[in-house]
Design a protein around this nucleic acid. Structure first.
Ligand SMILES: [Zn+2]
Ligand SMILES: [Zn+2]
Ligand SMILES: [Zn+2]
Ligand SMILES: [Zn+2]
Lengths: 160, 160
DNA sequence: GTCTATCCTGTTATGTTATAACATACTTTC
DNA sequence: GAAAGTATGTTATAACATAACAGGATAGAC
């Protein structure tokens, strides 16, 4: 079933990154879009952790490597990656995170730890939402489902 | 059951506003917090429509009435109203909307029409989200559930 | 190969959303 | 009416985001 949200559990992160980059590489080739240096590097930066990074954080990293120093560079790369489904935007944080399940067309839900900043991606559980919507005739195009709270690790000893 | 999302259906909006203001008034009295002029007016401004307003839109309205011209005035009033549960923040829009069911402690879900800007509030349908969360040990404190799409009215003739 | 159309990047400038910090005024309690 | 707590006014700046245009790389047509 592999429905475990990554991020809260230990895993081979190096292979996690490698497979995500490979999946993106192949998807770009298949779709005939360019996976340029800036785009690759932006995705790699986001893949380094299962936390969300702000556009300006990404930009700072790119800039340090001589890959662009002005906001539009980062925003354009991020917009491309979001369009292609390799990255998700976390509305609550005004930030971006690499997709944990690239390839599959999906409507993700996120769990955001307010203590450590880790963000885990889960499958959407929007059955009820869709029911509510269709009941009132609303036609859903996109969903934002984000829960904020404490991850398993941060619950122990984080009474505050 | 009265589970209809307001906003997409006709209703007596004047009475809708009046009862919301009254509920807020009473809740403030009961909780011993001040329902000041700026706070009242801010809530009234949001109640005027079932659309979301940005903080600076609210500020412009307040300013036109001599109730404050600087961002913190609007942001403070909005923060108060959100705390008290009279107003919700729509993350997707960086905007605010008056609660359609004040009084009840609830976890709302929103349906945002991308064409006309109407936002309807429904009950949260986060059963699956909670299941996902507890499965991985995540402790939810707050949820953001927002769907974007087309409302019933805008579907007719809005092929674009 | 080179021309051309398209897409990508670099840069300037500006727009939008949000808060920190401190001064002043009001309200409640005693 | 003094003290404590709460709310507002104001300055300044931080953080997030995009419009618009110029230049460079890439890909397909010939
Ligand atoms: Zn994903
Ligand atoms: Zn955590
Ligand atoms: Zn509500
Ligand atoms: Zn509409």
């Amino acid at each position: 079933m592999s429905n475990d949200p990554l991020g809260f559990c230990a895993h081979d992160h190096a292979s996690c990154m490698r497979s995500a980059m490979k999946a993106a590489q192949e998807a770009c080739a298949a779709r005939g879009v360019q996976f340029t240096k800036v785009r690759q590097r932006t995705l790699e930066i986001l893949l380094e952790s299962h936390a969300a990074l702000g556009a300006y954080d990404v930009l700072a990293r790119l800039n340090a490597e001589g890959l662009g120093s002005k906001p539009p560079v980062a925003y354009r790369a991020l917009a491309f990656l979001v369009e292609q489904g390799f990255v998700h935007r976390i509305e609550r944080l005004n930030a971006f995170i690499a997709c944990a399940r690239p390839g599959a067309d999906h409507d993700p839900a996120f769990m955001i730890c307010r203590a450590c900043g880790t963000v885990a991606e889960a499958e959407t559980a929007s059955v009820g939402l869709k029911a509510s919507a269709s009941q009132s005739g609303f036609q859903i195009e996109q969903t934002v489902i984000e829960a904020e709270g404490l991850c398993p690790t941060c619950q122990t000893g984080a009474g505050t």
